[in-house]
């Protein structure tokens, strides 16, 4: 696997969407290629950062109360 082939699969690798065989091929390339490894780490970092930052916050209590009245 060359860098371009790795790059094309990196998004699916970060998102855990590759087959086992493809996953192993990407892993093997990353272990041998610092630039691709750096890029992978950045992509993973960005994904986690977005999740952590956008996951905080709760629905307002009055909305929950209103919905409970509607639903139950």
């Amino acid at each position: 696997m060359n860098c371009r082939e790795c790059e094309e699969r990196l998004q699916s690798y970060v998102d855990r969407e590759l087959s086992e065989q493809e996953l192993l091929e990407v892993q093997r390339h990353l272990e041998a290629c610092p630039p691709c490894e750096n890029h992978f780490r950045l992509q993973l970092h960005l994904k986690r950062l977005v999740k952590v930052c956008c996951e905080s916050g709760q629905a307002p209590a009055h909305l929950r109360a209103k919905l409970r009245q509607i639903l139950f």
């Binding site: 956008c54 916050g57 629905a59």
Partner: peptide
Amino acid sequence: IGYLDTLYR
């Protein structure tokens, strides 16, 4: 209702 916080965000 268990998905309320998730949906609201």
